[in-house]
């Protein structure tokens, strides 16, 4: 043993000594975020696995539901002799009018960005359940690290993971034939990432809140499975708001996923939006701010038993 570790005078006398430093309220935040990220990039298999779903959607659904082909595959109405260009023109305008862009594959690809962000953000709740189950959370709670940092470490790591995975999905989508609007600028891409960032921030805070007191990963899984597809289908990820029945529209219009999609489609594809891009951003900023603040407040109250 020996060494100089505890060897100073007052220690031997049994006096209380304290570290003199003032702890910043954010200390430990990056260390906790980094812990999650290390666990993630050290297991590339799981990372690949989480990419399978959106890529399959893109490759199968996106390619097969090629609505543009409806018109180009030869429409022949008996008795009418409509020139092919006219049909093509009508088809393109029809699709553009409904989807905001004439290319369904690109429309869906933008939707898949929020798909992967949603799924990754949801996992943040799982991480806290595991930490509680394995005793790591209790250990954390005995250290002077702030409760807010514990929560925000999870949120931040989920956000970073979401954005990295969204990038991979975006690259794959481009390889499969996604087409950007002409004259795409760096600002457009930055705007898209900002939207995904805000959405991920709010969603991971939300799912962590649901998991604050939970010790059962089974129930957490059940919540995730219950919410993931309805959240996607009650958004404009797969189809535009225009086609929806009137009862669904109000739900879609409070779903943050819709706004993230709306931003990425306007910026990346030059599509006609559901609403103005400023309203989209205002909504997402409010969503992210409210839920992350709520997460921090609730963590002070409910993380301890």
């Amino acid at each position: 043993m020996g060494g100089s570790f505890f060897n100073y005078e007052n220690h031997k006398k049994g006096e209380i000594i304290m570290e003199k430093q003032d702890l910043s309220p954010l200390h430990g935040l990056w260390a906790l975020t980094n812990r999650e990220l290390k666990k993630w990039y050290k297991a590339p298999f799981i990372l690949l696995l989480s990419l399978v779903q959106p890529v399959l959607w893109l490759g199968l659904f996106g390619k097969a539901m090629n609505i543009g082909n409806m018109f180009t595959s030869g429409l022949n109405i008996p008795g009418l002799n409509i020139p092919k260009q006219v049909i093509d023109q009508i088809g393109t305008e029809l699709i553009k009018n409904t989807f905001g862009t004439s290319d369904y594959f690109s429309f869906l690809a933008a939707g898949m960005l929020s798909f992967i962000v949603l799924f990754t953000s949801m996992n943040s709740g799982m991480m806290i359940v595991w930490d509680r189950r394995l005793g790591f959370l209790n250990k954390l709670l005995t250290t002077p690290v702030s409760r807010g940092s514990i929560i925000m470490g999870k949120v931040l790591s989920a956000v970073i993971r979401s954005l990295v995975q969204a990038t991979i999905v975006l690259v794959i989508a481009v390889l499969l034939g996604m087409q950007f609007k002409p004259g795409l600028s760096a600002l457009d891409i930055a705007g898209t990432y900002a939207a995904l960032f805000l959405m991920s921030l709010g969603l991971s805070s939300l799912f962590i809140m649901l998991a604050l007191r939970s010790t059962s990963w089974e129930s957490q899984m059940a919540i995730m499975n219950l919410l993931n597809l309805p959240l996607l289908f009650a958004s404009n990820s797969f189809y535009p708001v225009k086609l929806m029945p009137s009862w669904l529209k109000p739900i879609v219009e409070i779903n943050p996923i819709s706004y993230a999609n709306d931003i990425s489609r306007q910026l990346l594809l030059g599509a006609t939006g559901m609403t103005s891009i400023w309203f989209d951003f205002a909504f997402l900023i409010a969503f992210a701010a409210i839920f992350s603040a709520l997460g921090i407040v609730l963590s002070w109250r409910f993380l301890n038993s």
Binding site: M18, L134, F136, K139, T143
Partner: peptide
């Protein structure tokens, strides 16, 4: 919290 050390029954190392 700053002045104590805690070793829980569970293995908490990552």
């Amino acid at each position: 919290r700053q002045s104590i050390g805690v070793v829980l029954q569970e293995y908490t190392a990552d």
